[in-house]
Design a protein around this nucleic acid. Structure first.
Lengths: 176, 176
DNA sequence: CTTTCTGCAAACGCTTTGCACATTC
DNA sequence: GAATGTGCAAAGCGTTTGCAGAAAG
């Protein structure tokens, strides 16, 4: 099981200090009395390598496609929950049913625009909305712990494809 | 809980013209080549009677508890989807997993504050957030079709209960 | 060596579906 | 009567879990 050595760390796209994050994961495991295993390492690394959002099933596919220590579906689910509990990744569902994850460290809070045609996810951050949310919560006596803002719509590409006469290529799952 | 006969139509809380909505449902069925059945009627009525949010399973329970034509679980799910497709009800998930419905007609758009302690759902509407969402979408080339904004936090009651020394009564499911 | 993991496959909870019978139009 | 709807139970789907063998500390 040769793990591809220099996969992480491509100098151009290291979002935050990769080693720092990794050390954080190791100490998290330690404090929880958990062990570092080849599987956990693979899953952790893969999750932090991607800037995309991914589902448990997708990550499982990656685990099988890409070489490395065998990782079972159960372990993928278990580790994803572990990472979420540890605050390393966050999850939200895109519309109906599908839950996707994204890594959080070195990734300031943001919300999502989701294309209902092609499923593309765009992240955005709008301070004024954030502030207004606090406002609303306060006015209603709530102390905010988190929030989810999902904007669903049709992205520029899909609008062009539809309008221009071109067929829609990407898997269109317009449901609801 | 003997079902109160004149439940709907209590003059004080009829949100919109009930008959108008109902006619709309009937014509919706007609245009779709669908039939009005006792089951669909019961489900439709029940959904519009409630101001609360409910899950498919909850509605199914209601169907069994309250008297009336028998309604199977399958029909509940089928009809809920039908009503959603027709734009009569909307659905969103409260946090993780649980999908709840709410009727839409005569119920202007709003978003939700959800108490992570007791599950209480408070509706709110904040025009400025709405406007900013349009803004964000436009800036990113999206044409908005819908959105979901869920604010999670601890409601005043629960904060009081926790702080004041009282134990938390309501089922606390603080997960994530 | 003790404790925690992993893989497997079975269990789960919620939702959907296939089919024969019942109902509406 | 022809077409659609319903109930039932079985099938699906994504996720979790129990258990025995495998690793980590």
């Amino acid at each position: 099981m040769l793990l591809p050595l220099a996969r992480r760390r491509s100098p151009s796209q290291t979002p935050v200090n990769h080693d720092a994050i990794r050390r954080r994961f190791e100490s998290f495991l330690k404090t929880q009395g958990l062990k570092m295993t080849a599987q956990r390492e693979r899953i952790f690394e893969r999750a932090f390598e991607t800037h995309d959002h991914f589902s448990a099933e997708t990550l499982y596919d990656w685990m099988r496609e890409e070489g490395g220590p065998n990782v079972s579906r159960a372990t993928v689910y278990r580790t994803l929950n572990l990472l979420e509990d540890g605050g390393f990744i966050g999850s939200f569902d895109t519309g109906r049913g599908e839950v996707v994850y994204e890594h959080l460290l070195g990734h300031p809070h943001h919300d999502h625009l989701i294309c209902v045609e092609c499923g593309r996810i765009v992240e955005f951050r709008e301070e004024r909305i954030e502030a207004l949310q606090e406002d609303v919560a306060e006015r209603n006596g709530f102390e905010l712990t988190s929030h989810t803002l999902r904007l669903m719509g049709v992205c520029g590409d899909c609008r062009a494809a539809t309008a221009g006469g071109g067929a829609s290529e990407t898997k269109a799952s317009a449901r609801s």
